[in-house]
Computed example of a mutant assay.
Amino acid sequence: MSKNNASSDPSVEALKLDNQLCFALYGAANRMTRLYRPLLDAMGLTYPQYLVMLVLWESSPRTVGALGEALDLDSSTLTPLLKRLEAAGLVERHRDPEDERRVIVDLSDAGRTLREDAKAIPEQMICALDLQMDAISTLRERLKVLAR
């Protein structure tokens, strides 16, 4: 097959990098992480730690299992994040007195205070993305469907 014919072959077109949904998502995820990094660095958080804090700011205390469910993370991924957050003084972990197998995670006073610093992040991200709110909402909802 010649080069000219290959470009009109649908199976070849399907293999082009620019036609890959996975690559578009990968690039978008990388850009989001780069945009968040300076904001989170100022707070002393990594992006995964920020996600844990978001869940705890919504509702705290939570079990490690409930955190994992909310973030779609298993405990082997979540435990090191929680240990680092605890070492930073942002969360406290303890065993559930009613069931020693369960670990409960709660915000410390410093973790609650950090929420005030985080309040500006969503607006800063909206400005950095330069998208209309309705476009952001639509994109978020479509991505949630894709992530199921």
Rank of each mutant, 00 (worst) to 15 (best):
C127A: 13
Y50P: 04
T63L: 05
T113W: 06
P97H: 02
R93S: 07
E86T: 07
A66T: 08
V52T: 10
D74N: 15
R34H: 06
D109Q: 11
Y36W: 03
R115A: 09
L139W: 12
F23D: 04
A118L: 06
E98R: 10
T79Y: 12
D41L: 10
M43S: 13
P122E: 03
R102H: 08
T77H: 06
A24K: 13
R95A: 08
P97K: 10
D18G: 08
D74H: 15
L45I: 03
D96T: 04
Y36Q: 09
M32A: 14
E116I: 07
D117P: 00
Y50K: 05
V105F: 05
D18P: 03
L21S: 13
I126V: 13
V64P: 00
M125V: 13
T46C: 02
P97W: 07
A87Q: 11
A28W: 15
S60N: 08
V52R: 05
L71C: 11
M133C: 05
A118R: 06
L35N: 09
Y50T: 00
E58I: 04
Y36S: 08
R93I: 08
S75Q: 14
K83G: 01
K83P: 00
T63H: 08
G44R: 07
R84Q: 08
V64H: 01
T46N: 03
E69N: 06
A70M: 00
P122Q: 07
E98Q: 04
R62I: 09
E86F: 00
N30R: 14
Y26G: 08
L25A: 13
Y36M: 15
Q124F: 06
R84C: 02
S137Y: 09
D18L: 07
T113V: 13
G68H: 06
A118E: 07
L73V: 01
E92V: 13
R62C: 14
L81P: 00
R31A: 03
C127E: 12
M32I: 15
A128D: 13
M32D: 09
F23W: 10
T33K: 11
L82W: 00
P61G: 01
D41Q: 15
V105Y: 01
S76Q: 14
E58C: 03
Q49R: 02
R102K: 04
D130W: 07
N19W: 00
S76V: 10
A28I: 12
M43N: 10
L81E: 02
A24N: 06
G27W: 15
H94M: 11
L40A: 06
L131W: 05
V103E: 12
A135I: 12
D18A: 12
L73W: 02
A118K: 02
N19L: 02
R93V: 05
Q132P: 05
L82M: 03
T79V: 12
D134Q: 15
Y47S: 14
G68D: 02
N19I: 01
M32E: 11
E58W: 10
L107P: 09
T113S: 13
V105T: 15
D96F: 00
E100I: 09
A118H: 05
L54Y: 01
D130M: 14
N19F: 03
R31T: 10
L21A: 13
